[in-house]
Amino acid sequence: MALLNVTSPHLHKPGNTGAFMRQVIYATVPGIAVLTHFFGWGTLINTVLAVLTALACEAAILKIRQKPIAFYLNDYSAVVTALLLALAIPPSSPWWLTVVGTSFAIVVAKHLYGGLGMNPFNPAMIGYVLLLISFPKEMTTWLPASGVTASTEALNLLQSLQLVFTGQISGVDAFSGATPLDTFRTYAGQPEVLDTNAVLHGLMAGYGWEWVNVAFLLGGIYLIWRRIITWHIPVAMLAAIFFLSGFFNTAVDADNYGSILFHLLSGGTMLGAFFIATDPVTAATSAKGKLVYGAGIGILVYVIRSWGGYPDAVAFSVLLMNLAAPTIDYYTQPRTYGHSKPNKGLAKRS
């Protein structure tokens, strides 16, 4: 009888890449719930649209590349990309925005680079940046969070569907509202407006958004607990934002620079820190490297938010640090057992 002849190790821990990715999907559930609570069904509709688009694109490309379709769809990587992009797109955006962004992310940013594991840039963020540059109006129009004024309510399912697929809602005229980051940016230096604007005054930070960020923080803690990600990137990124915002808010000018909590709990900070910056394919890989990489993203986020042309900056910061990740990896190797110090840089050419 033929015995299986393979090399050691003969044991393998149960689990595969698909299981790994599914954990990420589970961890977004609190965030999705809070987004839906404050902004209506738009987020869920976006998510479904994005996932379907991503699966279709992935299958088509796999077919063209003559790869086993079911085998690769099972790794859930396309679903995760679609999900993260959908969470970043405003819930009021038209359906085609989601479809364009997702297909670009899967086809160009992922598969044209060689597919899973080969892409140098985070595909979801490439899709996001494409949309932000091409359709700035749609991408920066958010709904007001429900409850921000006494009359604001979240859209119901029908209204959300109408908005996404037709661009208008019968019986409602004004349905757009600025995000806290946008509002702060517009009125920076005008303390009288900043102090009274309800958008900026939730319990801890911007109304509604503070809870979105708390929800993603919880999801992130779950990921660390399940050992899907390590603490290095989020902690370094949040620490960088913490120290920069603390310095400029307290030591420089509180009217022009938002508070620590405002920065930590606004926009895409927590989604970025735990779900986007931690994409292992495009991030730095050693523990030390992850700290450098995460801190770099945090610094860039703060710099672009405070002095750049966009209200939020997670996508640009992540993509810029993606570029730097391979180099960071060369210079942050751990010290191997039996060596007095870690190696640095590339191999010496003999």
Binding site: V6, H12, P280, V281, T336
Partner: peptide
């Protein structure tokens, strides 16, 4: 039988398991 090989996503599980502090993914 060993499962078919999937692409490496550089998750870093290997680096966390390495007893001599290598970067197996690299």
């Amino acid at each position: 039988d060993p499962a078919p090989e999937q692409p490496c996503i550089r998750c870093g599980s290997c680096a966390n398991a390495c007893p001599v502090n290598l970067l197996p993914q690299q």
